[in-house]
Structure formats: structure tokens, C-alpha cells
């Protein structure tokens, strides 16, 4: 069995990200792009200090990716003959986010970045299916699943933390559903918000999620 420990949503004005990181760490995170800062803020909010050393995987998807940084780099490269500043290139590489936050999350063993190819569609069903399989085969003790986006006027992180063992405050159990429910939730970026709403206000015992594009990857959440 796999358990949902956290479902949370974070929103920041992009300019506030460095301050939010400093408030959490007690120091700035040097040379960290916006997506890295979002990853750190969400991971810290999901994992209390005593769970940050446990074997953890981070599976994160993004619609925006490092869009703003990529435009900056393209302008630098295409409009001047000079080579770019190294940091400007590093900021366009989403894969480095996990390496940059690993010193603060020593249990972070692996990370996978899944850029999205369409707006308003997400791959939570893929992330959760991988998380369930990997937790069941004891690769990790917990898996952080996230959608991180950085736009000119908003920065958002939607997070689900799932683990192999129930915690005192676990929110639900989840399992792969072989038959998606007729009332299944669509796979969109705001799944954690809808899940939190169901947990707080919903009347049904279970809620299922499935992507119409991949019906065999349906996931069912059940209240504990």
C-alpha cells in the first residue's frame, strides 16, 4: 500500500522567491534559478526535517520549464557574437535543480524532470504510477511528485508527497486503478488542489484520477 502524506499548493510572485528561500534556509541559495528555488520550497514544505534523510525520489513536471531563462540565453547568443555567461546557460538546465537542493535534502537519491508538451494538461498519472511501483519495490521510502512553473508574473508549485509507510497524519491511501471511474478527475496541473478540496470537503470515500490519453494509468485515492 502507498500513502499520500502531503498535498500542497504554493504560489509566489517571482520576485519573492529568493526571500522565501532565505526564510526557509536561513541563508540564500546561491546561483539558483527560479525552478530550483521552487523545488526547494516545495520539498521543504512536504518533508519535515526528520524525513529529509530518507531515500527519496523527485519526479517533477513543468509546462513553462525554464522559459524566461531560455529567452534570455537565446537573446545573449543570437544577438551578440560572444559566448554566454556560464550561469545564464546553467539556468536553462532544469536537471540541475535536484543537484542544487540535494545538500539540503541528503536523502534525495534520484530526480526525473518531465517537460510537458501541451498547456493545461499534466502527467500526474504517470508520476504517481511510477511512484507507486518504485515504492512497492522499495527503491525509495518516499516520492515527491510536483508540477513547477515559472511565468513572468507568477511562480507556482503543486506537490504530492507519497510514501511506503503510513504516517500519523497521512491523508489517504492510493493505488493503481485497473478500471477508471466514470467520475475520474482529469489529469491537469491543479490535481493537488482538487485532491485537497476532496479531502476537506468531498463526500465520497474515494477519488480517481486518470488521463484520457492513458486510461491504463488511472490512480485511485481512498480516505483513511
Amino acid at each position: 500500500m502507498v500513502y499520500l502524506h502531503t498535498a500542497l499548493n504554493q504560489q509566489f510572485p517571482p520576485a519573492d522567491l529568493p526571500g522565501a528561500v532565505r526564510a526557509v534556509l536561513g541563508k540564500p541559495l546561491r546561483r539558483a534559478a527560479g525552478l530550483t528555488q521552487l523545488a526547494l520550497l516545495g520539498a521543504f514544505a512536504c518533508l519535515p526535517e526528520e524525513r529529509r534523510h530518507l531515500p527519496t525520489a523527485l519526479l517533477w513536471q513543468s509546462t513553462s520549464g525554464p522559459r524566461l531563462e531560455t529567452i534570455t540565453l537565446l537573446e545573449e547568443i543570437c544577438t551578440s557574437a560572444a559566448e554566454p555567461m556560464p550561469y545564464d546557460f546553467l539556468a536553462t538546465q532544469p536537471a540541475i535543480a535536484a543537484a542544487q537542493i540535494q545538500p539540503m535534502l541528503p536523502g534525495l537519491h534520484s530526480a526525473m524532470h518531465i517537460p510537458l508538451d501541451s498547456e493545461k494538461v499534466a502527467n500526474w498519472s504517470l508520476l504517481l504510477n511510477l511512484a507507486i511501483e518504485w515504492l512497492n519495490e522499495e527503491r525509495y521510502a518516499q516520492v515527491l511528485c510536483a508540477q513547477l512553473d515559472l511565468w513572468p508574473d507568477s511562480a507556482s508549485g503543486h506537490w504530492l508527497c507519497v510514501g511506503a509507510e503510513p504516517l500519523e497524519n497521512s491523508l489517504a491511501s492510493l493505488q493503481i486503478a485497473t478500471e477508471p471511474s466514470q467520475e475520474a478527475q482529469a489529469d491537469t496541473p491543479d490535481v493537488p488542489a482538487r485532491l485537497a478540496d476532496w479531502l476537506n470537503h468531498g463526500k465520497t470515500a474515494s477519488l480517481s484520477l486518470h488521463s484520457p490519453a492513458a486510461p491504463r494509468l488511472a490512480v485511485e485515492f481512498t480516505r483513511l
Binding site: T63, R67, I114, P115, L116, D117, S118, E119, A213
Partner: peptide, 27 residues
């Protein structure tokens, strides 16, 4: 730039004649 960072994946699927689920990875 398109709003979805991996929008090329839609075209790749089309070029390959694949209409099933698509997932992109950039690590």
C-alpha cells in the same frame, strides 16, 4: 517560444504516426 516547453514532442509523435500517450524527459 511556445508556452509548453516540450511542444516539439507533439510534432515528433505526428511525424512517427503515433497517437498514443506521449511523455517527454529532459534530464
Amino acid at each position: 517560444l511556445p508556452l509548453a516547453t516540450a511542444s516539439l514532442s507533439r510534432k515528433i509523435a505526428e511525424w512517427m504516426g503515433l497517437s498514443g500517450p506521449r511523455y517527454s524527459f529532459s534530464n
